[in-house]
Amino acid sequence: MDIIAYLIPAALSLGAMGLAAFLWSLRANQYEDLEGAAHRILLDDDDLPPPRA
């Protein structure tokens, strides 16, 4: 049973990481333009001159 002394904090911190990620994305305005984000992926930004090798 000693194992749960490690597993419980590990499980909780994984959950907390997910929560923190969500709160960060909310603060970073990731949900302000859901429709636009879906369309912007179609824009070609790669007509920029290719970086020199």
Binding site: G15, L19, L23
Partner: peptide
């Protein structure tokens, strides 16, 4: 809306983990 979403996220985290 953001305040509600934050509260919702915290409640979701808690209800899933307490089930454990």
């Amino acid at each position: 809306g953001r305040r509600l979403l934050r509260a919702l996220a915290v409640a979701a985290f808690a209800s899933m983990n307490v089930m454990m």
